[in-house]
């Protein structure tokens, strides 16, 4: 299990947090996604044999946010 932390500067409320954490359900291989509006970061635990960092970043973009890591 690998871990990656994204900075997501355009999170603007607690609602964004729940929306972003939805990638946990959307993307096979993502074990856990925990976002924080206060720190503007999201930590993702994922199975590197099933999904890549780029795919996770793409899933975040698909939700309307711009991740950097």
């Amino acid at each position: 299990m690998a871990k990656v932390t994204f900075t997501i500067a355009d999170m603007h409320c607690s609602n964004c947090v729940m929306r972003l954490e939805g990638i946990e359900d959307d993307l096979p291989g993502v074990h856990r996604a925990t976002a924080s509006y206060r720190s503007q970061k999201m930590e993702v635990e994922y199975d590197e044999t099933l999904v890549t960092v780029e795919e996770i970043a793409a899933a975040i973009r698909k939700k309307g946010y711009e991740p950097t890591h």
């Binding site: 409320c13 607690s14 947090v17 729940m18 954490e21 925990t34 924080s36 509006y37 206060r38």
Partner: peptide
């Protein structure tokens, strides 16, 4: 941002 109420991750 400390004034934002965020439910705990498990509750979310």
């Amino acid at each position: 941002r400390i004034f934002a109420i965020e439910p705990p991750a498990s509750l979310r």
